[in-house]
Design a protein around this nucleic acid. Structure first.
Length: 321
DNA sequence: AATCGTGCCAACCGCAATCAT
DNA sequence: TATGATTGCGGTTGGCACGAT
């Protein structure tokens, strides 16, 4: 039969851990190790569930943990691995000594997602937003494309105006020959003028210009879309030390991350990659646990012999999300 | 000074796989 | 083999800190 319950939920304390509790748990584990989490709180004199103790130990008390800021190199690793693995935080964290899956997950959700969005890259698919729009547009007839632009602006207009007003900036697109890039790095981009005044009656003009740019972005071929994430452009300035260098497999073009990206256009679908990648992980590792399989294979992505870029293109075609 | 909004992060929750009985 | 505990994981939330209003 089964075992007795791990803890009695009524008598278990929740919430923040006190320094005394931390000390009790650390002392106990230093002496006895981490075998059998069910017994640890009882033996250590803690009114906590074993699960809570395990979490506290693994995410905070472990002596090998790093608690400082994430470095640029760590951020690059997270972004690269996330583009391949999706939200498999434990596998990603395994490549970052001293970081826990919770750390990585929190950092992704609070910082990296926003950074990528600011670069015009969808943090879910790791594809440029403009390219996603273009992909959608390729499935639509021209009148529907126009409707798509209208609908998109309908969704974004209020938020954009809010942001523009909040930041006290006035964006004027000087040239309509390119789709508008995201307004990051506005101080150096020739496409934007930033001024401290913002007149409400300019909103209409601004929206019209955004609409024009969006429409152009949608009807352009993906290869000709403006590339705000280019290493020479806004992204590198806004993301110090970061180059959005994704695996390359045949698009050895201009060196932009998009030409190196995992997705080569509308053939990129999210549904069919995961089984391929999982089967790759499983190959040759039948005796290992799943976690060990993942860790070993992801480790190999960063080994001198086989780095991330060497993975077969099929494995990299789609993000795992 | 008080209130509100936002960002951040520790901790909780629930699910699935694994393990012990 | 069946059952239920344990473990690991990812998603979500609560609460604190801080800046803006």
């Amino acid at each position: 039969m089964g075992r007795i319950p791990c803890c009695e939920k009524e008598s278990v304390k929740k919430g923040q851990w006190t320094p005394e509790e931390d000390h009790k748990l650390s002392s106990y584990i230093a002496q006895h190790g981490t075998r059998n989490w069910r017994l640890i709180p009882k033996n250590a004199g803690l009114q906590r569930c074993g699960k809570s103790c395990r979490l506290r130990w693994t995410n905070y008390l472990r002596p090998d943990l790093k608690h400082g800021q994430f470095s640029d190199a760590e951020e690059q690793i997270i972004v690269r691995l996330h583009s391949v693995l999706g939200n498999r935080w434990s596998v990603i964290a395994a490549q970052l000594p001293g970081r826990t899956d919770n750390d990585v997950k929190n950092h992704w959700n609070t910082k990296l997602k926003k950074k990528l969005s600011g670069m015009g890259i969808d943090p879910v698919t790791h594809k440029p937003y403009s390219h996603l729009m273009a992909e959608i547009a390729t499935t639509l007839a021209p009148p529907q494309v126009a409707n798509l632009a209208e609908a998109t602006l309908g969704c974004l207009k209020d938020e954009m105006l809010h942001l523009l007003t909040k930041k006290h900036i006035d964006i004027q697109f000087q040239s309509p020959t390119h789709a508008p890039a995201p307004p990051q790095n506005a101080s150096t981009s020739p496409s934007y003028n930033i001024s401290s005044k913002h007149e409400a009656n300019d909103d209409h003009d601004t929206i019209e210009k955004i609409k024009l740019g969006l429409s152009r972005a949608i009807i352009h071929e993906p290869q000709t879309i403006n590339k705000p994430w280019d290493a020479n452009g806004a992204s590198s300035a806004n993301f110090p030390g970061f180059h959005y260098a994704l695996p390359s497999f045949g698009h050895e073009g201009d060196g932009s991350p998009w030409s190196q990206s995992m997705c080569t256009g509308s053939t990129c679908t999210a549904g069919d990659q995961q089984p391929q990648f999982h089967s790759k992980l499983a190959d040759g590792n039948a005796d290992d646990s799943e976690g060990e399989k993942d860790t070993r294979n992801v480790s190999s992505m960063f080994s001198p012999d086989c780095d991330l870029w060497d993975l077969p293109s099929n494995d990299l075609m789609n993000p795992l999300v």
